[in-house]
Nucleic acid binder design. Sequence first.
DNA 1: GCTGCATGATGAA
DNA 2: TCATCCTGCAGCA
Length: 248
Amino acid sequence: GHTVHRLARRIGADGLGDRVGASSPQGRFSEGAAAIDGAALTAVEAAGKHLLLELDGAQALHVHLGLFGRMSRLATPPRAPRGAVRLRLRTRAAVWDLRGPTACELLDPVAQDALLARIGPDPLRGDDPEPALSRIARSGRAVGALILDQRVMSGVGNVYRAEILFALRIDPHRPGRDLSSTDREAMWETAAEMLAAGERSGRIQTVTGVQRRRLAVYRQRTCLACGGEVRREDLAGRPLHWCPACQR
DNA sequence: GCTGCATGATGAA
DNA sequence: TCATCCTGCAGCA
C-alpha cells in the first residue's frame, strides 16, 4: 500500500494533465497500451494496493504490483527497455517502466466501481475505519488473517502485518472479536502511521535508533524487545513472524 | 543453467 | 488449501 500511494504521488507529479505515451516493449499489453497512447492523464489514485490512472477519453489503467511487480522511474531520455517491461509510460517529465505486475489492465467505470467496492477501507487514504473495525469485532478469524485480508482493510501487507501486531504486542492468533475496542482502533492508527512513514521514505522501517536493524520481528531471528526467538509459521497462507513471549 | 525465494491475489477443488 | 501466474536475483553446479 505504501508503495502504491508513493507511486501515485510521484506519477501524478510527473505527468498529471500531460498526454502520455504508452507502449508495451514486452508485448503482453500491446493492445491496452495502444488504447491509452496519447490520452491525457486526468487523475491518479491509489486505493489499498491498487493504482488507478484515469485517462481522458479512454478506460482507466489499473495496476496491481503483486509480489514481484515494480515500477521504476527513468529520467528522459530513457535507456532502451531491458528485461520484461510490460508497460512503458512516458510523460513530459519522465518515463515509468512497469514489470511483473499481477494486474495491468484497462477498466471501464463499472469495473472500477466493482474493484473499489470489494476492498476495505485504506488507512493511508484517510478512509473511515468503522467498516473494518466492526468486521474485526464480529469475526472469529485470527487477527493476523483479518489484517491481511484486503476485503477487511486494504493496504497492509505481510511485513506490516508482523510489525503492526508486534508494536501493539498482540498475539496474531487471537480472534478479532476477542480484541478490545482500544486494540482495534490502535491497529488502524498504527497501520496508518507505519504506512505513512513507508510512503514518505520509500522503504519499510518500523524501528529507529538501532544499528543495522529496520524491523522488529519480520524475518528477524530474535525479538527486538526481549531478545527471544522469533517464531515463523504460516498464517493465512503467508509466513508470519511474531514473538510468543511479547505477543500474548 | 538450474533451484529457490520474495513486501500478492485468484480460481478451482 | 492448493496450484498458478507474474519477474529478478542469489546461490549453487
